[in-house]
Deep mutational scan, measured.
Amino acid sequence: TGEEYIAVGDFTAQQVGDLTFKKGEILLVIEKKPDGWWIAKDAKGNEGLVPRTYLEPYS
């Protein structure tokens, strides 16, 4: 389980392990790392690192 967040901007993977997403996408945050990069999963089940500055809590 995780917390749902909504993307407030588009993000394109910079390196292997990053997750590309579009503004408005709902992501499930699995782990919040202290460096500001969180592990998240998208609706298709893809998992990767995302920058927390692009996310806001979804309710």
Rank of each mutant, 00 (worst) to 15 (best):
Thr1Asn: 15
Thr1His: 12
Thr1Met: 14
Gly2Cys: 09
Gly2Asn: 09
Gly2Glu: 10
Gly2Pro: 15
Gly2Arg: 07
Glu3Cys: 08
Glu3Arg: 07
Glu3Pro: 07
Glu3Ile: 10
Glu4Val: 13
Glu4Leu: 15
Tyr5His: 06
Tyr5Thr: 01
Ile6His: 04
Ile6Glu: 04
Ile6Thr: 05
Ile6Phe: 06
Ile6Ala: 04
Ile6Trp: 06
Ala7Ser: 09
Ala7His: 00
Ala7Ile: 02
Ala7Met: 03
Val8Leu: 15
Val8Thr: 15
Val8Asn: 09
Val8Glu: 03
Val8Ile: 15
Gly9His: 15
Gly9Met: 15
Asp10Ser: 09
Asp10His: 06
Asp10Tyr: 04
Asp10Pro: 05
Asp10Gly: 06
Asp10Met: 03
Phe11His: 07
Phe11Ala: 02
Phe11Ile: 04
Phe11Thr: 02
Thr12Trp: 13
Thr12Ala: 08
Thr12Leu: 13
Ala13Thr: 05
Ala13Asn: 04
Ala13Pro: 07
Ala13Asp: 03
Gln14Cys: 14
Gln14Leu: 11
Gln14Glu: 10
Gln14Asn: 12
Gln15Ala: 13
Gln15Gly: 13
Gln15Ile: 12
Gln15Trp: 08
Val16Leu: 14
Val16Met: 13
Gly17Tyr: 05
Gly17Leu: 04
Gly17Phe: 05
Gly17Asp: 06
Gly17His: 07
Gly17Met: 05
Gly17Pro: 03
Asp18Lys: 13
Asp18Arg: 15
Asp18Ile: 14
Leu19Tyr: 01
Leu19Ala: 01
Leu19Glu: 00
Thr20Arg: 04
Thr20Glu: 10
Thr20Asp: 08
Thr20His: 06
Thr20Tyr: 04
Thr20Trp: 04
Phe21Val: 11
Phe21Trp: 02
Phe21Asp: 00
Phe21Pro: 01
Phe21Glu: 00
Phe21Arg: 00
Phe21Gly: 02
Phe21Ser: 01
Lys22Pro: 03
Lys22Trp: 08
Lys22Glu: 07
Lys22Ala: 08
Lys22Met: 09
Lys22Phe: 09
Lys22Leu: 08
Lys22Ile: 07
Lys23Asn: 06
Gly24Ala: 04
Glu25Val: 05
Glu25Met: 08
Glu25Thr: 08
Glu25Gly: 04
Glu25His: 07
Glu25Lys: 02
Ile26Thr: 05
Ile26Met: 07
Ile26Gly: 02
Leu27His: 01
Leu27Tyr: 02
Leu27Gln: 01
Leu28Gln: 09
Val29Cys: 03
Val29Thr: 02
Val29Asp: 00
Val29Ser: 01
Val29Ala: 02
Ile30Arg: 05
Ile30Asp: 02
Ile30Pro: 01
Ile30Trp: 04
Glu31Val: 11
Glu31Lys: 09
Glu31Gly: 08
Glu31Asp: 12
Glu31Arg: 06
Lys32Asp: 03
Lys32Gln: 07
Lys32Ile: 06
Lys32Tyr: 07
Lys33Ala: 10
Lys33Ile: 07
Lys33Asp: 07
Lys33Met: 09
Lys33Cys: 09
Pro34Thr: 15
Pro34Gln: 13
Pro34Met: 11
Asp35Phe: 05
Asp35Cys: 06
Gly36Ala: 05
Gly36Ser: 05
Trp37Ile: 09
Trp37Asn: 07
Trp37Pro: 03
Trp37Ser: 07
Trp37Lys: 10
Trp38Ile: 02
Trp38Met: 04
Trp38Pro: 00
Trp38Tyr: 06
Ile39Gly: 03
Ile39Cys: 07
Ile39Asn: 06
Ala40Gln: 00
Ala40Leu: 03
Ala40Asp: 00
Ala40Lys: 00
Ala40Phe: 02
Lys41Tyr: 08
Lys41Met: 11
Asp42Trp: 00
Asp42Phe: 02
Ala43Thr: 12
Ala43His: 14
Ala43Pro: 09
Ala43Ser: 15
Ala43Val: 12
Ala43Gly: 12
Lys44His: 13
Lys44Met: 14
Lys44Val: 10
Lys44Ser: 13
Lys44Glu: 11
Lys44Trp: 15
Lys44Ala: 14
Lys44Tyr: 13
Gly45Val: 01
Gly45Phe: 04
Asn46Phe: 09
Glu47Asn: 07
Gly48Thr: 01
Leu49Asn: 11
Leu49Gln: 11
Leu49Cys: 09
Leu49Trp: 11
Leu49Ile: 11
Val50Phe: 01
Val50Ser: 02
Val50Met: 02
Val50Ile: 05
Pro51Asp: 13
Pro51Glu: 08
Pro51His: 14
Arg52Ser: 14
Arg52Lys: 12
Arg52Gln: 14
Arg52Thr: 08
Arg52Glu: 14
Thr53Lys: 12
Thr53Cys: 12
Thr53Gly: 11
Thr53Ser: 15
Thr53Ile: 13
Tyr54Ile: 10
Tyr54Ala: 14
Tyr54Phe: 12
Leu55Val: 06
Leu55Ile: 11
Glu56Asp: 07
Glu56Asn: 06
Pro57His: 07
Pro57Lys: 11
Pro57Ser: 07
Pro57Thr: 07
Pro57Asp: 06
Tyr58Trp: 13
Tyr58Phe: 13
Tyr58Thr: 09
Tyr58Lys: 09
Ser59Trp: 12
Ser59Tyr: 15
Ser59Lys: 15
Ser59Phe: 12
Ser59Glu: 12
